[in-house]
Design a protein around this nucleic acid. Structure first.
Lengths: 219, 219
DNA sequence: GTGTATGAAATCGTATACGATCCAGTGTGA
DNA sequence: TCACACTGGATCGTATACGATTTCATACAC
């Protein structure tokens, strides 16, 4: 059956936001969106409520919804949360990653490594997403998996800000990917994989914090 | 200004679910709830969408919403997620817990200890919630704090199931609380506090898993 | 020039209405 | 007795309508 209009509205807006068509601060006007979707405002309101609960938009009474605006604090909090959640997801997922998937991840990382020579931030980010998804996708805990997805969605809001690219970090990142893959391949203890995956992300965060003369994350 | 009807509906339903008035499996009929609130179905639908995004209710097209039903898998996943998130929240919160709050936490734990002699599961659970809240409430990362709250809300759904009480666990729990308090008081490294707080919860989970002849959580 | 009143336009919030869908109970034929 | 079509009631999904609120531009007073 065709999805409900509320569902369509949700998917459309979700995609627009995470793909970057609606950037932070963008005003979501009910009537406009409804007209574009060819439906009334009621389903659109429902869709926006869901996006609000996911932290992608803020909703103010009698004023309306806007895509959440990014700043240093949001970046810190989002990245820190993702580090914790994705670390756990990767560790829990590890036992279910088979040889083929490991090889696929290595291949992706290889392309990332080659990309260092002729750097393309957008492509690098895409590949990075793919790489990590291979590693955490088998996490058997659906709540944690869901939180990882939400974390990535929130991170996608940072796309166009200055947070994305820190000199030298890409090269380190590729190396750390290797180490994580080695741990998974060696069937290292979950705690060790968690630690490596979390640290990988925390280092990116701390690199930014250091650049902004802020103290490093304690975790 | 008076809260919007949508907001009121959300709060009412949220409270009913977390306080246990609406138990798992309870059917949320739009018209009925709307009539009770003295409003139309539109705000109620919005409220339910928010609850759905928080994982408190499931919503099926053309059928309606029901409070999520609990089972062993849900307990495992919820508890495991909470262990990870609350561990991090407690560690991040620790530097901001002052002497007075530590004393308050010790006092709560003392009452819990006394309660062991004449056990009252409901009261014990209440006190346990209070105790932990004191420890994680200063977590400076609002996303993590939010996830802790959501985790607790989901745990509250398990209230009436057989998961709550495992013989001997209450006594161990009180001791572990002491250890966590000591670490915080001693200004132990964040990683150490995180580990202790997470393990505290994971042990409860593993006690249940062991009783059900299931393998322990790897984290 | 600055600040405040005012009104119109934009937008939101929710009631109401009605078609669409699901479900349970009934009847019918094999 | 069983399988299946049918039907009425319950409930959902969404369009429409309209009052309430905010916003912003304009005009006016000081």
């Amino acid at each position: 059956m065709a999805p409900s209009k509320s569902e369509s509205a949700y998917r459309l807006l979700h995609e627009r936001i995470t793909e970057g068509a609606f950037t932070p601060g963008y005003r979501l006007v009910l009537g406009t969106i409804a007209a574009e979707l060819g439906c009334s405002v009621v389903p659109v309101r429902e869709a926006i409520r869901r996006l609000e609960a996911e932290g992608l938009v803020t909703f103010e009474r009698n004023v309306g919804a806007t895509v959440v605006t990014t700043d240093a604090a949001l970046y810190l909090h989002t990245m820190q949360t993702l580090a914790i959640i994705e670390g756990a997801a990767t560790a829990l997922s590890a036992p279910f990653v088979d040889a083929g998937q490991l090889a696929a991840a290595r291949a992706i990382n290889q392309i990332m490594s080659e990309l260092l020579l002729d750097f393309d931030a957008t492509r690098f980010t895409e590949l990075n997403n793919e790489f990590h998804q291979v590693l955490y996708q088998h996490c058997p805990n659906p709540h944690i998996l869901d939180l990882v997805h939400r974390g990535w969605n929130r991170m996608s809001l940072m796309r166009s800000s200055s947070f994305t690219h820190i000199p030298g970090r890409a090269r380190e990142s590729v190396k750390e990917h290797e180490q994580i893959l080695d741990l998974i391949e060696a069937k290292a203890p979950a705690a060790e994989i968690e630690q490596a995956a979390r640290a990988h992300r925390t280092r990116t965060l701390n690199a930014y914090l250091a650049a902004a003369s802020l103290p490093a994350s304690p975790l």
